[in-house]
């Protein structure tokens, strides 16, 4: 039993540490991009990196990768309704800005 638990400890840690290193690397990358990238590029890069980091956390730390279909559906619903909120509100905001 201790044999098994030792291997499972190893597996849990290895997997977690890889994700952690990736997350910190992305953090460093976004910090670098914020200063080095041209101003118009910085925001898309930084939010792209943030989205990637959030996806890593959701998939590998919160284990959406091995979750039930139902759980994934719940997460997808959150994002879908978020898209409704953003799309329709920005329809107004952007068309008002374009006309002003």
């Amino acid at each position: 039993m201790s044999e098994r638990s030792r291997t499972s400890i190893g597996r849990i840690w290895r997997r977690g540490l890889i994700v952690w290193v990736l997350l910190l690397a992305f953090l460093a990358l976004s910090l670098f991009a914020a200063y080095a990238a041209p101003a118009s590029w910085a925001a898309p890069i930084n939010f792209g990196i943030a989205a990637t980091q959030a996806a890593l956390v959701a998939l590998l730390l919160m284990r959406l990768d091995r979750a039930d279909a139902l759980v994934r559906l719940a997460a997808a619903c959150g994002l879908f309704w978020l898209a409704i909120l953003f799309a329709l509100t920005l329809t107004d905001t952007l068309s008002r800005l374009a006309n002003s």
């Binding site: 329709l88 329809t91 107004d92």
Partner: peptide, 22 residues
């Protein structure tokens, strides 16, 4: 029902384009 909320706002100063969509 989540796509229609703007019909409460036709006279709010919302853009006419968005009003059309809603």
């Amino acid at each position: 029902g989540f796509f229609t909320w703007g019909h409460h706002m036709f006279t709010s100063g919302m853009s006419p384009f968005a009003a059309l969509v809603f």
